[in-house]
């Protein structure tokens, strides 16, 4: 925490408006896709966003990449607010890799085109483009580069395509790389190769990487920090080993118990079955409360504050609030007497 973050999102909020009902009676209601999420990315660090589908991970990524405009909140690059409209100078600093390598490369163009365009747009080469393209391909371990530059996407395997997509993002020498589920469409046996490439880029090129995934095991493997999202909100953030070994939020605990783990001796106990809520009408208070095994009265009415469970480990959960303080907030909300708070975890 000594260095200032490269890219920062503060209090990001995004609603998507959907039509409900038909004809003249149709009205638009907001889907609370992302609610008041703050995130900061540091150079030489991989931050992982973990959550189920619909948790808002991708929306945060798209806001940070300036593809989607937030309804509230600001994106700061090196501490300065970014001007709207995705200026080229921003494109040069912040790049993105998409989930599906079969969709993110234009089928009609050769690999060379994909890598040349960013170089030309940002005037990064004069003269020897071939050399620059070769260098890029080598940086993502596509060797020999000459063999790959003139191929069409359909001539490459999924892993090779994803490497090309990463090379395209690296072409402008960005400082931030946003990777939205970069390995989930790839075959199991080649996922580690791409993850290792990202780790390597973090160390060698000092990139700040945002790694978005639903696979908490891969987040633990790659990331320095893991941030868990649930129903559009942040629920927990901590260094990755700390988070997976000592999860503080009941949702994180549920997520970890559900993840496939052949090493498990006992079948896991799933605490909090059910599905994420509809984001058209998110639950009041803590959004996880309808599923939470430790739910208390206060959880139903008041959104939990973010509590530092230990240094660097933050959880948004009433369980970690000092009971007296909790009582106080509860009384502030409720006229009726508080229920007996349940025993905290395990």
């Amino acid at each position: 925490m000594t260095t200032a973050p490269v890219l920062e999102g503060r209090n990001l909020t995004k609603y998507f408006w959907v039509k409900q009902g038909r004809g003249l009676l149709a009205r638009k209601s907001p889907v609370h896709a992302v609610d008041n999420v703050s995130v900061s990315l540091d150079a030489r660090k991989v931050t992982a966003f973990v959550g189920e589908s619909g948790a808002g991970k991708t929306t945060v990524a798209r806001i940070l990449a300036e593809i989607t405009k937030p309804d509230k909140g600001t994106v700061l690059l090196d501490g300065k607010p970014v001007q709207a409209g995705r200026p080229r100078s921003y494109a040069k600093q912040v790049q993105m890799v998409f989930q599906d390598p079969f969709a993110s490369l234009n089928p009609v163009h050769r690999v060379r085109h994909d890598l040349e365009r960013p170089l030309k747009i940002h005037h990064l080469v004069n003269g020897n483009t071939d050399k620059a393209v070769d260098d890029l391909l080598e940086r993502v371990a596509l060797k020999p580069p000459r063999q790959f530059a003139d191929k069409f996407p359909h001539e490459l395997s999924g892993g090779q395509r994803q490497r090309v997509a990463i090379a395209r993002a690296l072409a402008v020498k960005p400082r931030v790389l946003i990777a939205d589920e970069p390995v989930s469409m790839l075959d199991v046996s080649i996922r580690l190769g791409v993850l290792n490439l990202l780790a390597d880029l973090r160390d060698r090129e000092k990139l700040a990487i945002l790694y978005i995934t639903h696979d908490i095991a891969s987040a633990r493997y790659l990331a320095d920090t893991i941030v868990v999202m649930y129903a559009g909100q942040l629920v927990e953030a901590a260094p990755s080993v700390e988070l997976t070994d000592r999860p503080a939020h009941p949702y994180t605990q549920l997520l970890l118990s559900a993840a496939p783990d052949p090493d498990r001796a006992q079948p896991p106990v799933l605490a909090g079955i059910g599905a994420p809520p509809s984001l058209l009408a998110p639950p009041t208070g803590c959004r996880f409360h309808p599923r939470c095994p430790h739910v208390m009265e206060v959880c139903r009415h008041k959104a939990p504050p973010s509590i530092a469970v230990s240094p660097d480990h933050i959880a948004a959960c009433w369980l970690h609030v000092d009971p007296a303080e909790r009582q106080a907030s509860e009384n502030g909300v409720l006229a009726t007497g508080p229920l007996e708070p349940e025993k905290s975890k395990r």
Binding site: I67, R86, M96, N106, R117, P118, I121
Partner: peptide, 9 residues
């Protein structure tokens, strides 16, 4: 792929 080229400026 269209989004990607938008992202690249």
């Amino acid at each position: 792929f269209v989004e990607a080229s938008r992202v690249s400026g």
